[in-house]
Design a protein around this nucleic acid. Structure first.
Lengths: 191, 191
DNA sequence: CCTTTGATTGACTGGTCAGTCAATAAAAAC
DNA sequence: GTTTTTATTGACTGACCAGTCAATCAAAGG
């Protein structure tokens, strides 16, 4: 019973399924067949809409990054005072929609993909650039030379993701607080 | 002309070739054939000595981790004063033998492997545990409650590796200095 | 109606790769 | 000098998988 206008739904389902499969497998070596099955369609349809596995992966990556962007933008908009902005950014980075097993695993795998696929590298560099810029702005209220601290906090957030990917225990909130504590120390201990 | 006692040499060459291939490909999807060719032997011989691809990967991982351990141990032994220890550990983490394109790439890929292979996860957790322990000890000279700072510095070092894996510019020495600056700030700004 | 268009699939293909095995050859041991 | 051990490989196989294609089905448009 082919209904019309399926494309957007199928695309979304496939993207979601891709993240789920990557998370479950802990690897980019998921077959188009697995992804398609999880999305409830045939692998041929996945190829039909996306063209190839590379495009499916790319779409999944864009989805994660855009969801992340939305989270940060919302947090920034909700920040009452300039001082709030720093905490808002850090909290957004560990919000549920981003800091979740499947997403973290996919995100880690995208770093690997970036070593091979220039497009993936470009996307990741854009993400890093935005994070740096956001942190720099937020830190400027607190310190004269915010750049080094922004760099450190950006790397620290990535490091927390990496450790979360390794599994371990209840990072979920601890991570955000540790990053905030580090931010406080950087502000207080500025040279 | 089969000489005797080749096994150790072949194993070492294959391990080295594995790291090289992973670094070149930016992925664990390197074939046993590629690894073997780089090591100058047939893929059958690689299977003969290691049993399978999983064991080759595991051996490469152990090699990187043990080289890393040696670097840290040497740095710690060379530290004159207790205050030196912290800088020594951080410097060792960014020493040439560890902080090199191929090795970083392989190390990142091992984090991915750890999501699927419990043995890889175990090894990585041992590495993290040692780093935490070393940092905690070194920080105790400077602060009453070193644990949170050690946690943060460990994650920060991992984050720096992750960013180095993404390529970018001359991290090589900048990274170490940024981590040291962060350590100073944590010590100075302790609550 | 009938035809165009979008949705959807099963079946097929060409290529790749981990792992096996029997064979060869040289050193070592007896 | 024969046997054992170690080193080494080419050739094979069984599985898996991305991508293709022709066919089917139903809604929409005329």
């Amino acid at each position: 019973m082919p209904k019309i206008g399926m494309e957007p739904q199928r695309r979304a389902a496939l993207v979601q399924a891709t993240i789920g499969e990557i998370g479950a497998a802990g690897s980019l070596q998921v077959t188009v067949g697995q992804i398609a099955r999880r999305a409830g369609v045939s692998s041929a349809l996945a190829h039909h809409y996306f063209g190839g596995k590379a495009q499916i992966l790319s779409a999944a990556m864009r989805h994660i990054l855009s969801e992340y962007s939305a989270e940060v933008r919302a947090a920034l908009a909700a920040a009452k005072t300039p001082q709030d902005r720093l905490r808002a950014i850090i909290a957004a980075n560990f919000a549920e929609s981003c800091f979740e097993a499947d997403v973290i695993s996919a995100w880690l795998n995208f770093y690997v993909l970036a070593q091979r696929d220039p497009e993936a590298g470009r996307l990741l560099r854009i993400y890093q650039g935005r994070l740096r810029s956001n942190l720099t702005h937020a830190l400027r209220v607190h310190m004269a030379r915010p750049e080094p601290a922004a760099e450190v906090l950006g790397a620290l957030i990535d490091g927390m993701y990496l450790r979360a990917a390794l599994g371990g225990a209840g990072f979920e909130q601890g991570a955000a607080e540790q990053v905030m504590a580090c931010a406080d120390a950087l502000i207080r201990g500025q040279t």
